[in-house]
Design a protein around this nucleic acid. Sequence first.
DNA 1: GTGCGTGCAAATAGTTTGCAGATTG
DNA 2: CAATCTGCAAACTATTTGCACGCAC
Lengths: 185, 185
Amino acid sequence: MTKPSWKVKPVAEKGARDLRQRAEEYLEALRKRGCRRTEQRRLIIETLLESEGEHLNARELMERVQSKDPTIGFATVYRTLIVLGETGLVHSFDQGEGFARFDIPDQAMHFHILCRSCGKMEHLADETAKEKIIEGWVKEAGYEMVPQTFQVFGLCSDCRDKVETAPDVSPEVTCCGRRRRGWTR
Amino acid sequence: MTKPSWKVKPVAEKGARDLRQRAEEYLEALRKRGCRRTEQRRLIIETLLESEGEHLNARELMERVQSKDPTIGFATVYRTLIVLGETGLVHSFDQGEGFARFDIPDQAMHFHILCRSCGKMEHLADETAKEKIIEGWVKEAGYEMVPQTFQVFGLCSDCRDKVETAPDVSPEVTCCGRRRRGWTR
DNA sequence: GTGCGTGCAAATAGTTTGCAGATTG
DNA sequence: CAATCTGCAAACTATTTGCACGCAC
């Protein structure tokens, strides 16, 4: 909500070294799981870190990675996402689009609310407080919390109004101009 | 948790009329959205009602539907699920399997906790109380609550132990014998 | 009768996999 | 040197769509 526009790319020059540094930490975590340290993985991790909060999908991620090294292919990106996911370094989720988006959580988990009608997505307020509550539920069930992005569906105010006045909107019509696949997962 | 075994099919004879009755209500809701009342849709809705709580996927649903009318095809099942979803009568979600499962929520919202390592799924306790909390968050964000299944990921006690003793489990090995796609959504 | 709904089969799209060669430890 | 990774292309699978016909309204 405080984000001025989507697709901001805050590649602060001063952050470039940090980036390399942080990528190293991720590579180190992978190495502990028996993975090798490759240039491709480093590039993919750096790109994920650069685009933190943008929730890229596999194709978008690959395009950015390819802008740095055009030889990197789909398979490598997917395979890297899989090991990162298994190590808990990347979380993936489906915003009801029918494909996965990826998040490299810095420290806090994210809380998304999505409009079931138009697909618009926002973050809930006080994500940390809410995370604590959810963590309680997880422990209560005897599970250990893992990094993730929570998603809740609702009807945004725009769509609610439209439903009230016209309950039989054509399935193609969305209130916010975004497309939607057959159903919202 | 009180469910004795999965794949129970409580088609109580006394419930048969209820079923027809309830299916009618769903058809009526669809009609209000401008959809026509067809025999196929009635069959699909009845089958969904019968399998409440089983979280069938599209193929499983289709197989049950086809056991009543073998001429019904995939496309019809999918298309019916889409209109039901748009009308809020069916909720779909991905348990990290890479495909959708469907739920016809009676009244209460469901809360699933899934083990990120083995894919095991359980319901959280006190779903009604938790629903209230989530509903508060949804309203706080200016959205209207819609029926849904809320999913949280964690590590079950079995998998946690295994991770502690062997952090580098082969990706193929799972603690509960269930397969898992590349990553957990 | 008009137009939505259906069944079929073919098309899409996201993701996974087999393989031969390159790279890492 | 052996094992893991990579890039490519082909395979897979879930889901969607075009089309001709049938049925609901």
